[in-house]
Design a protein around this nucleic acid. Structure first.
Lengths: 231, 231
DNA sequence: CGCGGCTTTGATGTTCATCAAGTAAAGTGG
DNA sequence: CCACTTTACTTGATGAACATCAAAGCCGCG
């Protein structure tokens, strides 16, 4: 089995753990050989709302945003997906078309599996189905509850929360380059661009963070956490 | 097969359609005989956040709200579930405990299936798993996108939206008794009680709706829709 | 090198939360 | 069944939070 994985270059892919214990090696090899990787540079649209769902895509590297485009030009970001999140997960099994859009906010690679193959595997293999369901359930849950959490907070609380989110959940360090523009942060937390900037400037003046353009350094994490908590 | 269903009193249950085409009659009979119905009156808590998930519950009749309790006493309602919605669906396959609460907002009956049985059935039967997944996917999708929709709107827009929601999605008529208090409406749309009342009073003064305590009559639906749209 | 988008700050106005106070309705114990 | 308490509802007044508008500097890119 290891051999099969090696041959089709999936041996280092975390996704295989989802398959490994549930799917036989022949099936894995098949998936591995029919998969297609796609490269997107920062800013490229991966999925447009309304596109037919033809493949089951997951993110192999990079970072993408999932969002809805308002008719007034204002977008709403509801999730930032990181590697090994399933980009198609929300709609793939219930709709024929995406009802949200996906854009790369860092250079990204998606791995696309054949959707029909996947559906067939689910139909034939309940254990595999269960593992997909768990993943799906966790993602939905996270989106729903995180949105509620953000919405309880005021402007400063929301901005602090997002900064901590990138530091802890995405980059794992307190100094990082913001992958979102101020405008996109605003679209994520449901406030205006100007007020996001104002909140960040306040944090800077209060010595909580340092700002070098897109680079952010969290100086006083305790204080930032307290701001995120209070809001 | 019909016989089995009749014997265990599930023959009129819409849920059976989820089973019917995918599960053998023996299994259906088993589920049917091990199910337990529970009656809750309006205001009763069905699930408290943190409760272990021991059964897989769906709503047979009535109306319930799914919500998170804030530490400050302010709640956040994120879904109103109507008959044949799955109350346990969001977390049942990914967590051991509920991370939200459920309360009856009308007298309700839940039907509780044995969770372990259900998990076993999913593991053994991929087609059944797929049908559960579809349902799950649709529910999550609905919650996520509906929340975004509401959040785009201003106070009046949100209140109008909710009134239309009850008229069209829940009761199917333009005169109905609000199952939520003004406070709960506020917790659903993320505004304060006072402002929900003010918006409704405005609608009344403008001849859009009539209010008799909890009874609401939509008089000028076109206008109400425009308010919901604009916001 | 100039154009458009991103960022920043200030000024102004609107929306909405909060506070306060009173009425109505609904549950509770004697 | 009635006094009593509590909870829901309603309206008005006030101020805080935030959106909007305006203007200028910055940066990347064709």
């Amino acid at each position: 089995m290891k051999d099969e994985l090696l041959r089709c270059d999936c041996e280092n892919c975390e996704l295989k753990e989802l398959f490994y214990y549930n799917v036989d090696s022949q099936e894995i090899e098949h998936v591995c050989h029919t998969k297609k990787e796609e490269y997107y540079s920062k800013g490229e649209v991966i999925v447009s709302e309304g596109d037919p769902i033809l493949k089951f895509a997951y993110l192999k590297s990079g970072l993408v945003k999932l969002y809805k485009e308002g008719n007034d030009g204002k977008g709403q970001i509801f999730m930032i997906a990181k590697p090994f999140d399933f980009v198609s997960l929300l709609s793939a099994f219930s709709y024929d078309n995406y009802n949200y859009s996906v854009m790369a906010i860092e250079d990204s690679i998606t791995c696309n599996l054949n959707l029909e193959d996947l559906k067939r595997m689910i139909n034939e293999n309940g254990e595999f189905a269960m593992s997909i369901m768990k993943k799906m359930s966790r993602v939905s849950d996270m989106i729903i509850l995180e949105n509620l959490t953000i919405r309880r907070k005021n402007l400063q609380g929301r901005v602090a929360y997002i900064l901590l989110y990138f530091a802890d959940n995405i980059y794992g360090k307190d100094e990082f380059e913001l992958p979102l523009s101020r405008r996109e942060i605003a679209e994520f937390i449901g406030k205006t661009t100007e007020n996001v900037i104002r909140a960040m400037s306040e944090f800077r003046k209060d010595g909580i963070i340092k700002i070098y353009g897109k680079m952010i350094e969290i100086v006083d994490k305790g204080k930032l956490k307290r701001v995120a908590e209070f809001g």
